Simulated scan of single mutants.
Amino acid sequence: MAAALVVGYAMLVWNKIQTPQFAGPWLFGPPGARWSVTEFADLECPYCKTYTPALKAWVQQQKDVNLQWHHLPLDFHGSAAINEAKMVECAGELGGASAFWQAVDQVFKQTRSNGLGFNGQLDISDVSPQALMDCAVNNKQISLRISRQAEEAIKFGVTATPTVLIKDNKTGRSLKLEGAADDVMLLSAIDLLIQKNN
């Protein structure tokens, strides 16, 4: 009996070593940035598919801005949007923020959008396809996290994707922009938030 308990405990410890647990929110860019741009997005949204890479490129060019992902799988995109959200969340939980953003990029590259999804699998560094699939199918906390984010989006008055929320982490003030806000709109929103501080 004692030997079985030791083996059971050893397996539990081994599984913890084999499957590191990371937690979001998933940030792209410097964690301590003054400005956070939260993108409310759906992985089956064709507008998000073209907008998210442009937004990431813009964030990379800024020295004091980070990007945070917020799931809002739209009902009319069906189960494909939810399944893809589970996969990218699991990639992040198993491999950290870098794996999360790799998964987002790969889903957008592969999806046919508008609820059609994609065939095949994601190829995420340091995350096995089997572990990713097991997590997406079995991890109830991931499903709950996605549901909570969708509910929070609705509370913020966000009903369409993409929508971005720009937050001044110094003052806590924020501004919501609906649609694919380009670099001029993003910088103008930051300027407006700065003017509100003066």
Rank of each mutant, 00 (worst) to 15 (best):
G78M: 00
I190T: 12
A2D: 13
I166W: 00
D123M: 10
S174F: 15
F100G: 03
F28M: 11
G157S: 12
A181E: 13
P30T: 10
C48T: 01
G96V: 08
Y47N: 07
G179I: 05
S147F: 00
I146C: 08
F156V: 02
A85L: 05
F108Y: 15
T171I: 07
F118G: 14
M11F: 06
S143C: 00
R173H: 14
H77S: 00
V184Q: 14
Q102N: 09
I146G: 06
F100Y: 13
D75T: 13
C48V: 04
G120N: 12
L116H: 11
L192H: 08
T159L: 08
R145G: 03
P20R: 06
A80I: 01
A4V: 02
L144E: 14
K167Q: 13
L27M: 11
L177W: 11
I82M: 09
N83G: 11
R34A: 01
P46N: 11
M185L: 13
P73Y: 09
P31L: 07
G92A: 06
L94A: 10
N15A: 15
D183C: 08
G78R: 09
W69A: 09
D75I: 09
K170N: 15
P46D: 07
S174C: 01
H70Q: 13
Q61F: 06
S79D: 14
L55W: 11
W14H: 14
A3R: 10
V104Q: 00
L165C: 04
S79V: 08
E93I: 08
G29E: 10
K63C: 03
S128H: 03
I142W: 05
L165E: 15
L177H: 04
I154W: 05
S128Q: 00
R173C: 02
Q106H: 14
L144K: 13
Q68A: 11
S125Y: 08
Q130N: 09
